[in-house]
């Protein structure tokens, strides 16, 4: 698996694998689903190999932002300012910044829940504007900060994506595998969604995003409603998903202790600009500039400042 990855081409040159045409629904006529690498889910043990440093560097960018700007309303101050960012296949990326720095806005652009006001967003080598929106969202799954479960039982919830795509239901094994990857046992399949705890709901939402095997997993503050222990467990699951399935994972998070626990790459946003970018520990060890140093130390796990991280940004440069 690892050896063939460099040779993999991106969707614009791949043959269409399946074309869905439903004459009564014209919107769906345009949907061509780019080929998804056929690895079993989860991959057999012999295929499980963490991506080493070198192959990660050779991998093609799955996310490529060029000078991306976004403002919430015409005339308002931009939330993202001319952001350039490149994320390669298989990376594990933390997007960090104080609230209002553009983390959520950035994630929402990656599966085109929102539109940019300038610049281009390329996903899997193709500008998002050229993707059929639904096909893009299948490749770039999004887990919201506050999970919304829509069905009665967990099993129905995990079948929902297949249902929405008019596909045959997922096999029981694939549902159990997705649940397992999200850190829940198979018994949860028959649970009523209503009875789940916040942490379990977040995990079901994660499993629902994984069940159609996206290439990209985007999570917006997935641990915000969770206690510390549950949060760390969820992050462990994310790291496993990234390691064993080679899913590119982008997590927006503002809790620095969790970021250091998860590891991988760290992207710091300050006021909509890319302020720092590098391996987590490297950025923490050598923060570029005083403001980032202040932010990264402001809520350090063992020394949370009394005023909290937000106060750091009241200073004017």
């Amino acid at each position: 698996m690892g050896g063939s990855r460099e040779g993999r081409q991106f969707p614009q040159v791949l043959p269409a694998q399946r074309v869905r045409v439903r004459p009564e629904k014209p919107l769906e006529q345009v949907l061509t689903v780019p080929e998804v690498p056929l690895q079993s889910f989860p991959p057999p043990p012999e295929q499980v190999q963490p991506m080493d440093q070198k192959s990660a560097e050779r991998a093609l960018p799955v996310i490529h932002l060029r000078s991306v700007s976004r403002r919430m309303a015409p005339g308002a101050a931009p939330v993202l300012r001319e952001l350039d960012l490149s994320i390669r296949e298989g990376e594990l990326v933390n997007v960090v910044g104080p609230s209002g720095s553009g983390k959520t806005t950035l994630l929402r652009l990656l599966n085109r829940l929102d539109e940019t006001d300038g610049g281009t967003v390329e996903i899997l080598g193709r500008p998002v504007t050229e993707w059929p929106a639904r096909a893009l969202r299948r490749q770039a799954a999004f887990v919201f900060q506050e999970p919304v479960l829509l069905e009665r039982t967990v099993r129905e919830e995990l079948q929902l994506p297949f249902h929405l795509w008019n596909e045959p239901p997922g096999s029981p094994e694939s549902l159990v595998a997705a649940l397992g990857a999200a850190g829940l046992e198979a018994e949860f399949l028959e649970c009523l969604c209503k009875t789940l705890s916040v942490g379990q709901r977040q995990r079901v939402a994660l499993a629902r995003a994984l069940v159609t095997r996206p290439r990209l997993l985007l999570l917006d503050e997935p641990t915000s409603g969770l206690d510390e222990q549950t949060a760390f467990q969820l992050l462990n699951n994310l790291r496993e998903i990234n390691r064993t399935l080679h899913t590119t994972v982008v997590v927006a998070n503002h809790r620095l202790a969790e970021v250091r626990h998860l590891g991988g790459r760290l992207v710091v946003l300050l006021e909509g600009r890319l302020a720092a970018d590098g391996p987590v520990e490297a950025v923490f060890a050598h923060p570029p500039g005083a403001r980032i140093a202040a932010f990264l130390s402001g809520s350090r796990p063992n020394g949370v400042s009394a005023a909290g991280p937000a106060s750091v940004f009241r200073e004017t440069p």
Partner: peptide, 15 residues
Amino acid sequence: GEVETLLALGAAPGR
């Protein structure tokens, strides 16, 4: 939240 969850899962707006 419900509507955007469905959109993010690949639902058409009508659905």
